[in-house]
Design a protein around this nucleic acid. Structure first.
Length: 249
DNA sequence: ATTCCTTGCGGCCTTACCTCA
DNA sequence: TCTGAGGTAAGGCCGCAAGGA
């Protein structure tokens, strides 16, 4: 199945979801424009709908990932028992009768589409994710033109592309932080070991100082008559092999 | 030249939905 | 069938920079 075909099929399922008013497919929904978010949108009535139960296939592949900002309007009639109470309530609120059939002209460009206040989880298709990922490899941020172009290719809204890149950057940073954390942990462990070793060495040196020069006689001093004039500590510091160890750090 | 306001964008944190074990 | 954990799209807030008045 080709990319376009896939998107096309996705949009069919999407149509159903949109028809039920469960999907953000509206370019003009309240979350879309900041101004509308602040001032409120005519479609917002503060009521949430229950989740639409989708099969794994629909949910993961089609669900809602590919709603288009340029798709044509379609009309669907659906009746879901789970939705009945909500639909009835909404009909009442809209001064409609209790007709259980929810009929919505599904047009993602329809500004008056009135079921956009539900936050529906979107799933990008594998193809969409792959293309986004590929694009991210080339540049982790997008200029407006690139964003628009990518959105057009993917049949997504520019905002969705933007959000994907934001989240992707966040994931990258998180991963990077985890890697750095691991490196620091290892570094910390090494330093701890080194510290232990140096403590031991220090203790050894101290004990040698206490026992006096006889135990630490430098071999060369035995054959060198002048060496007897040297302080015992000198022997230790010059002959003791550990003294160079810490320099390796 | 400076200040203030608006707008747009990215970062960050959080929320909510969805999938899966 | 239920549930908790994990993944992730999206919401919300903040800071910053650019541009205009």
């Amino acid at each position: 199945m080709g990319f376009d075909e896939n998107i096309s099929n996705n949009n069919q399922d999407l149509g159903l979801a949109l028809a039920l008013g469960l999907v953000h497919g509206d370019e003009n929904c309240s979350w879309q424009k900041k101004k509308e978010e602040e001032e409120g949108h005519p479609c917002s009535n503060g009521k949430a709908y229950p989740s639409l139960t989708l099969g794994p296939q629909e949910a993961s592949e089609s669900a809602v990932s590919s709603f288009s900002n340029s798709s044509s309007a379609s009309i669907k009639r659906e009746r879901d028992p789970e939705l009945m109470p909500y639909l009835e309530e909404e009909n009442k609120m809209n001064n409609n009768n209790n007709n259980p059939w929810k009929v919505i002209d599904v047009d993602v460009d329809d500004e008056n589409h009135n079921n956009c206040n539900t936050r529906k989880k979107l799933r990008l298709t594998k193809q969409q994710s792959a293309l986004l990922e590929e694009s991210f490899k080339h540049h982790s941020t997008l200029n407006p033109k690139q964003k628009q172009e990518l959105a057009r290719k993917l049949n997504l809204r520019a905002r969705q592309v933007e959000v994907w890149f934001q989240n992707r950057r966040a994931r990258t940073k998180l991963k990077q932080t985890e890697v750095e954390c691991e490196v620091l942990k290892k570094c910390c462990e090494r330093l701890r070991e080194e510290n232990k070793r140096l403590q031991k060495e220090l203790q050894h040196l101290k004990s040698m100082t206490q026992t006096g020069p006889t135990l630490a006689t430098c071999p060369s001093s035995e054959t060198n008559n002048n060496s007897s004039n040297l302080h015992p500590r000198f022997y230790k510091t010059t002959c003791y092999p550990f003294t160079q160890s810490s320099a390796a750090c």
